[in-house]
């Protein structure tokens, strides 16, 4: 700072060759911290300076101090103030983004949201295969097929909604992300019998619902680094409400099928499955 180069600072209004004054202007522009010291020096020495510039320098130093409080908060406004004062062809503005709270910064809520989108995508295509299986000429259960198609369509739409929401919060989508909740990948077959397939769907929907609970729990720990009211509210409104209905419906279906299987020594089974499929065709 001893040999301040000659340069023109718009906020000083004139060319400055005083090394101290220079350091004040530079300090404001580049890192703010030296400004405090320079400012104090100038206060002490100010009676000795009769230059017109000195009042402007003091005003600048005060504005530097004001800006200093903003530096620690890393605001977009501060980025703009800093970068626009420099003559360069690029603007960094690293704090001008949609990230607020702890999303994408601390905790695993952002990661879990990515994993949640991936979970929906994978389950959606599994449901699609189940829908296909129940639509082949041998199984020929169009009601079951319709049920799985609906589940597939819903989870697919949610995949896109989740991706949009992650980006709404300033995050980006990572298609390889897996949840910390995820243990070994299930290696299950799609080709299941009627009751088995409903049981499988029920388990899958519970997995999806409980994952939402987990993310919600991470997002609602008060005074914790992961607290995020917006994500919690979003999950409640767009996911958690619907999950209860879907799970209840599937559980109801398994109860019905269970009755048909057990009663009348199982003689009703083939007609019961046929009728139940017809029922699904009309109601799903």
């Amino acid at each position: 700072m001893t040999s301040g180069p000659k340069y023109s600072d718009t906020r000083c209004g004139k060319e400055i060759d005083d090394s101290r004054a220079s350091s004040v202007c530079k300090g404001c522009t580049f890192d703010g911290l030296p400004a405090i010291f320079s400012f104090n020096i100038i206060i002490l020495l100010s009676p000795y300076y009769a230059s017109n510039c000195i009042m402007k320098v003091i005003a600048l130093a005060v504005s530097c101090l004001l800006a200093l409080s903003a530096v620690s908060a890393e605001t977009c406004f501060n980025d703009v103030s800093m970068d626009c004062g420099q003559a360069s062809n690029s603007l960094g503005l690293p704090s001008c983004n949609a990230i607020y709270g702890h999303f994408s910064r601390q905790g695993n809520v952002a990661n879990e949201m990515q994993a949640y989108a991936n979970l929906h995508m994978r389950r959606s295509y599994e449901y699609l295969l189940s829908a296909a299986y129940y639509n082949n000429y041998q199984t020929n259960r169009l009601g079951f097929s319709k049920l799985f198609q609906k589940l597939s369509d819903e989870t697919w739409d949610k995949t896109i909604e989740l991706i949009k929401h992650i980006t709404k919060r300033g995050g980006s989508m990572d298609f390889a992300r897996r949840s910390v909740q995820e243990t070994v990948t299930r290696n299950s077959t799609i080709e299941l019998q009627e009751l088995e397939s409903l049981a499988h769907a029920l388990d899958t929907q519970k997995e999806i619902a409980e994952r939402a609970f987990y993310i919600h729990q991470e997002a609602t720990r008060n005074n914790h680094k992961t607290h995020d009211a917006e994500i919690a509210q979003y999950l409640e409104e767009e996911f958690i409400e619907d999950h209860a209905d879907t799970i209840r419906n599937l559980a109801g279906h398994t109860s019905d099928l269970k009755q048909f299987i057990v009663q009348n020594d199982g003689n009703d089974l083939s007609i019961a499955l046929y009728l139940f499929d017809e029922y699904l065709q009309k109601t799903v």
Binding site: Y125, A132, Y133, Q138, F175
Partner: peptide, 24 residues
Amino acid sequence: LIEYLLMRGELTNNLTSLIAVRAP
């Protein structure tokens, strides 16, 4: 395409290996 295969009597087995979901 799945619908087409179903119409032609296909997809009675080997369903699980039909689609693999991989990261882009």
